[in-house]
Nucleic acid binder design. Structure first.
Lengths: 110, 110
DNA sequence: TTAACTCCCTAGACAATCTAAGTAGTCCAT
DNA sequence: ATGGACTACTTAGATTGTCTAGGGAGTTAA
């Protein structure tokens, strides 16, 4: 289709980032890896999507960041969920499941 | 979320239109109704999304149109799938299921 | 020393969907 | 016969999400 190269369904990035962080604080680069990992390498996020996504979520108060050192002794910005981010994740999951379920139902109609 | 009002998951409109038409030729207005119907009223497509979507699909050769009269004796543009539209529907369904499946898997990770 | 990998940043393009507006015909109830 | 709900199509413009494509700099291992 027009978006044959898309590595993600549109509108799911924020939710996936929140989900990744719900499993523990991480730096940006690691979030991309974790999302790949928990999706069996099916979902790949480009850095040009990931970092702007992180700024967006932080601006909205759903995640917070702090500079620290990574495992490799490199500077890295670690993100963690805020309380409102946890709530947001739940909302997004519910909404996603509702719409994805309806879409699947539609695809099965005959 | 930012898209709390969204009636659709982004990127699914083309597929849903093709799916609706795979069940039989229809005019634009009816396509919106059929999509609502086969999704148990969970998916609502605004006309400002639907009609531009139809022009897009026609431009790409996946659907064809013809003016005719509706049940109510009103002029209406009837659309039907082309052969390449049928192929496209299959591709989009496969891609959607792959990505939606991966997303669901990610959401269930712990 | 060079390649592969870790880590971050940003500008600009593109595409999808929505809001909001308009036109016009039909049907039905009052 | 009037007004309102519904059918049916069209289009402009805004918003937003994700991507492409570049940049920089540090680390590790061959």
């Amino acid at each position: 289709m027009s978006k044959s190269k898309a590595g993600l369904l549109q509108g799911t990035l924020d939710m996936l980032i929140l989900k990744a962080l719900s499993l523990g604080a991480l730096h940006g680069y690691g979030i991309g890896q974790r999302i790949a990992q928990i999706s069996d390498d099916a979902l790949k996020i480009e850095e040009g999507s990931l970092y702007p996504g992180l700024y967006r979520l932080e601006r909205r108060g759903w995640i917070e960041s702090e500079w620290d050192l990574s495992d490799n002794n490199q500077r890295a910005k670690f993100y963690k969920l805020t309380r409102s981010g946890r709530k947001q994740l739940i909302l997004e999951e519910e909404n996603w499941e509702r719409l994805a379920g309806a879409t699947m139902k539609a695809l099965r109609a005959s």
